[in-house]
Computed example of a mutant assay.
Amino acid sequence: MEYVEYMDTASTATADGEGSRSPRWLDDEEQRTWLAYVHASTLLEDFLDRQLQRDAGMPHVYYGLLVQLSAAPRRRLRMTELAKSSKITRSRLSHAVARLEKSGWVRREDCATDKRGQFAILTDEGFEVLRQTAPGHVHAVRQALFDRLSPEQQKSLGEIMRIVAEGLQPKEAGADLPWLR
């Protein structure tokens, strides 16, 4: 994939609201790094998704939901909290939970204190599926990522990802984020 610079003569707003500055285009090394990241993250997600589909008949995002529920007190979370922590829309979460319910791995329960609220609850069957699936998934993660990196590279990757995540974490309570809709 080759990078093409699109130079626009119109003014461009910057992230801090100041206008009429040209974009800071990526230099060649930054572009190679960016494209490598995009390519690797796409391949990694596909690899993990195929492993989980093969071993457990579920996509990676569903596995992530089961993991979050398994770690929650009493293996239950409000649907809004699960959407927020999963970074998916409430609509997509509702669809996913419906599929997990159909498999018998999750059930929903109305919130006694909030008529509009619901809990997603990991069932014993769902916990067992997660318990059986986890070893193969950890093996796939190790094979795809950690076994390819030195301990120093693993540490650097962790530090880099924490910095990126921290910088992207919304600071304002009313941010227009898909998982809050």
Rank of each mutant, 00 (worst) to 15 (best):
R54M: 10
E81T: 03
K84W: 14
F119L: 00
A173H: 12
S11G: 15
K171D: 09
A71H: 06
T89D: 02
I160R: 10
G158F: 11
L177V: 07
S70K: 05
V61K: 05
A112W: 13
L48A: 00
Y37C: 11
M161P: 11
D114I: 01
M1Y: 13
H39C: 12
F146K: 02
S156V: 03
R181W: 10
S41V: 13
D8I: 05
L26H: 04
V106M: 01
A165E: 10
Q53Y: 03
Q154K: 07
D176F: 12
G17F: 06
Q68L: 13
H39F: 11
S150I: 01
A13D: 10
V129K: 09
G57H: 01
D124G: 07
K155E: 05
D176H: 11
S156W: 09
M161L: 14
Y63E: 01
G64K: 05
R90Y: 07
L48V: 01
H139D: 12
W25K: 06
L149Y: 08
T12M: 04
L130C: 00
V67P: 02
G104F: 07
L168S: 07
M79G: 02
A165M: 06
G126F: 00
S70H: 07
T14L: 11
R142C: 15
P170E: 00
R54V: 09
D114C: 03
S156Y: 09
E18I: 05
G158S: 08
I160L: 13
Y63D: 01
D27Y: 05
F47P: 12
K84M: 10
E125Y: 10
T113R: 06
L43H: 14
E159H: 12
T12S: 07
S85D: 08
S94Y: 05
V38K: 09
G158T: 03
D16M: 03
V67E: 04
Q51R: 15
L26W: 13
T123S: 04
T12D: 08
V4H: 11
E30M: 04
D8M: 07
A83P: 07
G174H: 07
V38S: 06
R32E: 15
P135W: 00
F127H: 13
G126S: 00
D27R: 09
P23W: 02
D147L: 10
W25R: 12
R107M: 06
L43I: 07
K84N: 12
V141D: 02
A10R: 15
A165Q: 03
M58Q: 05
E81G: 03
W105Q: 01
W25E: 08
W34C: 08
F47Q: 10
L168N: 08
L168I: 05
V97M: 00
K84E: 13
K115H: 13
E18Y: 12
Q169D: 09
Y37F: 15
D55A: 15
I121N: 00
K171L: 14
Q132K: 10
K171H: 12
Q118S: 10
D46T: 14
Y3L: 11
Q143P: 15
R74N: 14
R99H: 08
D16N: 06
P23H: 03
T14Y: 06
E101M: 05
R78F: 01
R148K: 12
T123E: 00
Y62G: 09
H137S: 03
V4R: 06
T9W: 13
M7K: 15
A71C: 05
S150Q: 03
L65G: 01
P59E: 02
H60Y: 15
G64P: 11
E45K: 14
F127I: 01
Q132V: 08
K87H: 15
S156F: 09
D55T: 15
E29A: 11
P170V: 00
